[in-house]
Simulated assay, not measured.
Amino acid sequence: MSDETRTAQSRPASLYVHWCRIPSCKQWGGFGFSNNRGEPQWWCWEHYPHKPNNARIEAAEIAEMLR
């Protein structure tokens, strides 16, 4: 495979800065996703709505032990 047909970048790549989407939070938004081709939504770990629920995981482990 050759990259001879590729054009060189005219400028260096830029960093996409994304903060937590909660207005009062000033932490880095390292967790996010996009449902469509629109702008992705970003959250810090504290506000991330899709993190695993520890109580649910612990209940599943207890239920498995009781089998």
Rank of each mutant, 00 (worst) to 15 (best):
residue 2 S to G: 10
residue 3 D to R: 14
residue 3 D to Q: 13
residue 3 D to I: 11
residue 3 D to E: 14
residue 3 D to W: 11
residue 4 E to D: 10
residue 4 E to Q: 10
residue 4 E to G: 08
residue 4 E to T: 13
residue 4 E to S: 14
residue 5 T to Q: 13
residue 6 R to W: 15
residue 7 T to A: 13
residue 7 T to F: 04
residue 8 A to C: 07
residue 10 S to R: 14
residue 11 R to G: 05
residue 11 R to A: 14
residue 11 R to D: 08
residue 12 P to N: 15
residue 12 P to M: 09
residue 12 P to S: 12
residue 13 A to D: 10
residue 13 A to I: 10
residue 13 A to S: 12
residue 14 S to T: 15
residue 15 L to I: 14
residue 15 L to Q: 13
residue 16 Y to S: 14
residue 16 Y to W: 10
residue 16 Y to R: 14
residue 17 V to H: 12
residue 17 V to S: 11
residue 17 V to I: 12
residue 17 V to W: 06
residue 17 V to Q: 10
residue 18 H to S: 10
residue 18 H to Q: 06
residue 20 C to S: 03
residue 20 C to F: 00
residue 21 R to K: 06
residue 21 R to W: 05
residue 21 R to P: 01
residue 21 R to Q: 09
residue 22 I to W: 01
residue 22 I to P: 01
residue 23 P to E: 10
residue 24 S to L: 04
residue 24 S to W: 04
residue 25 C to Q: 03
residue 25 C to M: 03
residue 26 K to C: 06
residue 26 K to S: 06
residue 27 Q to G: 03
residue 27 Q to T: 03
residue 27 Q to W: 03
residue 28 W to N: 02
residue 29 G to N: 01
residue 29 G to R: 00
residue 30 G to N: 08
residue 30 G to S: 10
residue 30 G to M: 09
residue 32 G to L: 00
residue 33 F to R: 15
residue 33 F to I: 07
residue 33 F to Y: 11
residue 33 F to W: 12
residue 34 S to D: 11
residue 34 S to T: 12
residue 34 S to G: 08
residue 35 N to T: 09
residue 36 N to R: 13
residue 36 N to T: 15
residue 38 G to Y: 02
residue 38 G to P: 01
residue 39 E to D: 05
residue 39 E to W: 05
residue 40 P to I: 02
residue 40 P to N: 04
residue 41 Q to L: 13
residue 41 Q to M: 11
residue 42 W to C: 02
residue 42 W to A: 00
residue 42 W to Y: 07
residue 42 W to T: 00
residue 42 W to Q: 00
residue 43 W to D: 01
residue 43 W to S: 00
residue 44 C to N: 01
residue 45 W to I: 14
residue 45 W to G: 05
residue 46 E to K: 15
residue 46 E to W: 08
residue 46 E to S: 09
residue 47 H to D: 01
residue 47 H to F: 02
residue 48 Y to E: 05
residue 48 Y to M: 04
residue 49 P to K: 04
residue 50 H to M: 09
residue 50 H to R: 13
residue 51 K to L: 06
residue 51 K to G: 07
residue 52 P to I: 12
residue 52 P to A: 13
residue 52 P to R: 13
residue 52 P to Y: 11
residue 53 N to K: 06
residue 54 N to V: 15
residue 54 N to A: 15
residue 55 A to T: 06
residue 56 R to Q: 14
residue 56 R to N: 10
residue 57 I to A: 12
residue 57 I to G: 07
residue 58 E to T: 11
residue 58 E to V: 09
residue 58 E to M: 13
residue 59 A to N: 08
residue 59 A to Y: 04
residue 60 A to F: 04
residue 60 A to C: 02
residue 60 A to V: 02
residue 60 A to L: 04
residue 61 E to P: 01
residue 61 E to Y: 03
residue 62 I to K: 02
residue 63 A to K: 02
residue 63 A to P: 00
residue 63 A to E: 11
residue 63 A to G: 03
residue 64 E to F: 03
residue 64 E to G: 00
residue 64 E to I: 01
residue 65 M to V: 10
residue 66 L to I: 06
residue 66 L to Q: 10
residue 66 L to H: 05
residue 66 L to K: 12
residue 67 R to A: 08
residue 67 R to V: 03
